[in-house]
Design a protein around this nucleic acid. Structure first.
Length: 597
RNA sequence: GGGGCUGUAGCUCAGCCUGGUUAGAGUGCCGGUCUGUCACACCGGAGGUCGCGGGUUCGAAUCCCGUCAGCCCCGCCA
């Protein structure tokens, strides 16, 4: 991934442990590191000494070690820090599994630089034993971080940010920091809030993203900005969601969508090249949001799964199957997908998928199996020869295939079919894990309908350019308007999202008003942005990459916690530093805060 | 806010469903033997509030209720 500097030598060491190779043979040297494993053979001792570069075997024997060294080596604990001096020699019996397995350091003198207490969790990972529980790993994070996997993850993360800085800098971007102490803006998620001592009763908000600032920077004449930005959201956690996370935040002025796509593709190509030594294609596939929902039921489709959702309404209605006919007359559709070779799934399996569809909010999932000469499944009784022929012709259903069908409103069927498609594909091993799909999802709707109030709420954020910036259309039929907004989806994972921003103040006001905000509220919350828009706004847009997620994919981590040095638990606690914690009452008083518990 | 899984020796786990002598294994730790190991080997030893509280029972690691913590998911969150 990244090249080590040739010289890691310091006053304590002539080389790092993993750097010692045959070229060192017969040379006298000193080395320093942690005691990884010790093997005591009575008269001889072997110690594997470790630093982040790897392991080096030290050997101790009466013919080449001082008696002090022999006395000390017998007492070493795992994770003591030791410094050894001696001569490098070829091993009589090399260890091919070890990076430095050809050689060893025959130690003459040994010094214990730091003593380790007995370990609560081992750094050395016994074969075929599970890692210590996540709780203990986080509590004793410094020991956990010493493991090669964590070392690798965080160093690859570093390599990724290096590649990002290099690519963006070469493309003319300027890295600028924006405030952490800022003001609340209604951006969907709950804010973390910081009390002001100087202004009692008032609070700063920690940013959910630098969104407004980066747009202000565009207005401020920095036509290409980026930042590796900490973002904070006070929402419940998931394996792929931390309250504190990092975005590669990018914004460009004087651009249209294609310019942004091009810049982002270049950046990811650079990351993949520098960190994984792989060439990514540019000009990624583009899929409008509406099509993604139609064909895959989700705005982040995993294209490694071959099956696509299709519309069965015309073929399966009017043939005497009540559920389908009722769905159609209620304005719904019958949608489904064909599982190639899925007829081998057991009845109980298929029933379990029905329950899954119900959990997703659908009435249930019906199924159809085709064998050599017959159909089975709930609707099979009404499938005559005509319908059978139609199914085969239109959907390519072959003997041995299984079809899942969900009837209802598109919102519900999409959700259920997406969940089924992914679950069944994983269980049947139908995911082409050797493929990599980079995908732009574009033309997101500008608004979504709020389930409770029925009001349009911005689908992205409120500063997105409509595809058709017609104020009348936005006023009259806001939910029909699409936005110049896009996501990067990699194998079903949302890597990034962004948009072209609305630089037209009069359109921006209409967009905000359509969400039910009064002009006074708009002025109070976004006045500083609209003010900036009065003095010549460059057309601009950008995107933000979820760095933690990208790195997690690069290293194959199941959880973001494995690519963050000091992450929070799923209850948003820091186990190492024991956060959050109570605050001294005197301090609270100074802040003018009384705590109700 | 809701649902699910987990919690037993320093660590990783078995035992729990079907309650019953003294709660086991591996590893780590301590002591001993061993001059070419690399998961060193061999011998011996210590180590337990079965997360915590309550209940049922003659008897609870085991059954029930509550609670705490970790993990996963829904809600929430781009």
């Amino acid at each position: 991934m990244s090249r080590e500097p040739a010289a890691l030598q310091t006053a304590y060491r002539d080389a790092a442990c993993g750097q010692v190779d045959a070229s060192w043979v017969d040379k006298e040297m000193q080395i320093i590191g942690w005691v990884h494993r010790r093997r005591d053979l009575g008269g001889l001792f072997f110690v594997d000494v470790r630093d982040r570069t790897g392991l080096l075997q030290l050997s101790f024997g009466p013919d080449w070690s001082t008696s002090d060294a022999l006395g000390l080596v017998a007492e070493l604990n795992p994770e003591d820090v030791i410094q050894a001096r001696g001569v490098v020699a070829l091993r009589p019996d090399p260890n091919a599994d070890m990076l430095t397995g050809e050689v060893e350091l025959r130690v003459s003198e040994l010094e214990r630089v730091s003593v380790s207490d007995p370990l609560p969790i081992l750094v050395y990972q016994p074969p075929e034993e599970d890692l210590p529980s996540e709780e203990l790993r986080l509590q004793h994070r410094i020991l956990d971080l010493r493991r090669p996997e964590m070392q690798h993850n965080l160093r690859l993360r570093h390599a990724a940010t290096n590649a990002i800085r290099a690519s963006l800098s070469e493309q003319g971007f300027c890295e600028i920091e924006t405030p952490l102490l800022t003001r609340q803006t209604p951006e969907g998620a709950r804010d973390y809030v910081v009390p002001s001592r100087v202004h009692k009763g008032q609070f700063y908000a920690l940013p959910q993203s630098p969104q407004l600032y980066k747009q202000l920077l565009m207005c401020g004449g920095f036509d290409r900005y980026f930042q590796i930005a900490k973002c904070l959201r006070d929402e419940d956690l998931r394996a792929d969601r931390q309250p504190e996370f990092t975005q590669i935040d990018v914004e460009m002025a004087f651009v249209r969508q294609d310019d942004v796509f091009n810049a982002a593709e270049q950046m990811f190509q650079r990351i993949w090249k520098d960190c994984m030594d792989r060439d990514l294609p540019g000009a990624w596939e583009r899929l409008p949001h509406a099509q993604a929902m139609e064909r895959f039921g989700t705005d982040k489709p995993d294209l490694r799964i071959p099956w696509e959702i299709q519309d069965f309404t015309d073929v399966l209605t009017g043939i005497g199957f009540g559920i389908f006919d009722a769905t159609k007359s209620a304005g719904g559709r019958v949608r489904g997908f064909v599982v190639k070779g899925g007829a081998s799934l057991s009845r109980s399996r298929v029933d379990a998928y029905n329950e899954l569809a119900q959990e997703a909010g659908a009435k249930g999932a019906l199924w159809l199996k085709r064998s050599e000469d017959a159909w089975s499944g709930q609707p099979s009784k009404v499938i005559g020869d005509d319908v059978s022929a139609e199914l085969v012709a239109q959907f390519g259903i072959e003997p041995g295939d299984l079809v899942f069908l969900v009837a209802g409103e598109d919102d519900l069927t999409s959700r259920a079919l997406d969940l089924l498609r992914r679950t069944v594909a994983h269980e049947l091993d139908a995911v082409a894990t050797d493929e990599e799909h980079w995908l732009w999802i574009s033309e997101f709707p500008l608004y979504l309908k709020d389930a409770e109030t029925g009001l349009p709420v911005p689908a992205q954020h409120a500063f997105t350019m409509p595809s058709n910036p017609d104020p009348d259309l936005i006023r009259d039929d806001p939910l029909s308007v699409t936005a110049v907004a896009y996501d990067i989806v990699y194998n079903g994972i949302e890597f990034a999202s962004g948009s072209i921003r609305c630089h037209l103040p009069e359109v921006q006001r209409v967009i905000l008003e359509a969400t039910g905000l009064s002009p006074e509220e708009i002025e109070a919350r976004f006045g500083f942005l609209l003010e900036a828009f009065r003095y010549g706004v460059p057309p601009h847009g950008g995107y933000a990459v979820g760095l933690d997620r990208v790195v997690a994919v690069m290293v194959g981590a199941a959880s973001l916690r494995d690519v963050i040095a000091f992450p929070k638990t799923s209850a948003a606690r820091g186990l190492l530093e024991q956060s959050p914690s109570n605050v001294d009452p005197a301090e609270l008083k100074e802040l003018g805060i009384r705590v109700d518990t």
